[in-house]
């Protein structure tokens, strides 16, 4: 394992900002794994840390001529202040790619990250969505012509979400990786600022499975749960396959539904309660039979927020 500082910036009042990289194996740049781009992405940080620990212990097993780079935290400043965006100017590093080395601070950070990871054949970003609820673990790719579906299903996660990039997402690492011919997959799940131990394990095993399928790691070194078995087929869903259920009323959001639950058409999945007198303002029912892909998870909900996504 080689440790390096990929980028460093001085601050007026804090210790220097540093991005650390961990390299394993040597030779062709095969896989880059990037996490902790936002202060809310501690779950991805945890998964990346487990990968660093694992690769350190099993470095001799990495296929010869293959190099893996792991960057567990692009954004320690925001992780340490529990702030989703960049502390000084509230910009989002993951909307600044491909970056600009002479531009604003977060453009410079994005440029440094891009330079470090752009020659890799495969790119994995452990990321999150800004939704205030919880997702199932899934691989997320953009439709850009370059075929990332094959790479995405190799993680063997329950879902692959093939998502059409909106104008802002043209500034994401995933999008720009693909512009530069890296096959890129984002892994998302859970809820910002939280860690779900089961999801951490699912993501960790998913990445190991991916490394086995790509021929970077041999089967005999990974835990049995991470082996790429035939029955682990991901379901590929498009934006239009996701049934979005919004709230027609506001109030206290009460639910026992969890992401990944099987749900029946017509089943009551959540209630919106009057916050002063406790009466049920609205019962949210599943419009279809399927799996809960996302469940809102905050105490209070506005009118016209996304309560559930069912696939």
């Amino acid at each position: 394992m080689k440790t390096e500082v990929i980028y460093r910036l001085a601050s007026m009042s804090r210790e220097d900002y540093q991005i650390h990289g961990y390299r394993f194996g040597s030779g062709k740049p095969r896989v880059a794994i990037v996490a902790g781009m936002r202060g809310s992405e501690a779950q991805g940080l945890y998964v990346a840390a487990k990968l660093v620990q694992y690769l350190k212990q099993n470095e001799q097993a990495i296929a010869s001529g293959s190099e893996i780079l792991v960057i567990p935290s692009v954004n320690p400043y925001s992780l340490n202040t529990v702030h989703r965006l960049w502390p000084l100017d509230h910009t989002d590093i993951n909307r600044m790619f491909p970056g600009y080395s002479k531009g604003e601070t977060t453009q410079r950070i994005a440029a440094a990250v891009m330079e470090a990871v752009q020659d890799y054949e495969l790119g994995v970003n452990l990321t999150s969505t800004p939704h205030p609820g919880k997702h199932v673990v899934h691989a997320r790719i953009h439709r850009l012509g370059t075929d990332s579906v094959e790479a995405a299903v190799a993680f063997g996660l329950p879902f692959v979400h093939e998502h059409e990039a909106n104008p802002q997402e043209t500034g994401s690492l995933n999008y720009n990786w693909q512009i530069w011919n890296t096959r890129a997959v984002s892994l998302a799940g859970g809820r910002g600022f939280e860690i779900d131990e089961d999801q951490v394990l699912e993501l960790f095993h998913g990445v190991l499975r991916f490394l086995v399928v790509q021929g970077v790691l041999p089967k005999n070194v990974v835990p049995v749960e991470a082996l790429p078995l035939q029955h682990r087929h991901s379901r590929v869903v498009q934006d239009t396959d996701i049934c979005v259920v919004t709230t027609p009323r506001a109030g206290i959001f009460s639910t026992r539904c969890r992401p990944g639950d099987s749900v029946q058409a017509g089943e009551v999945l959540a209630e919106i309660l009057d916050p002063h007198v406790g009466e049920v303002r609205y019962e949210i029912r599943s419009p279809i039979t399927g799996t809960a892909f996302y469940v809102y998870r905050a105490p209070l909900v506005y009118e016209k927020m996304i309560a559930l996504m069912i696939v």
Partner: peptide, 8 residues
């Protein structure tokens, strides 16, 4: 007044 490297 507070700036970092890159601040406009």
């Amino acid at each position: 007044p507070v700036v970092m490297e890159g601040s406009l």
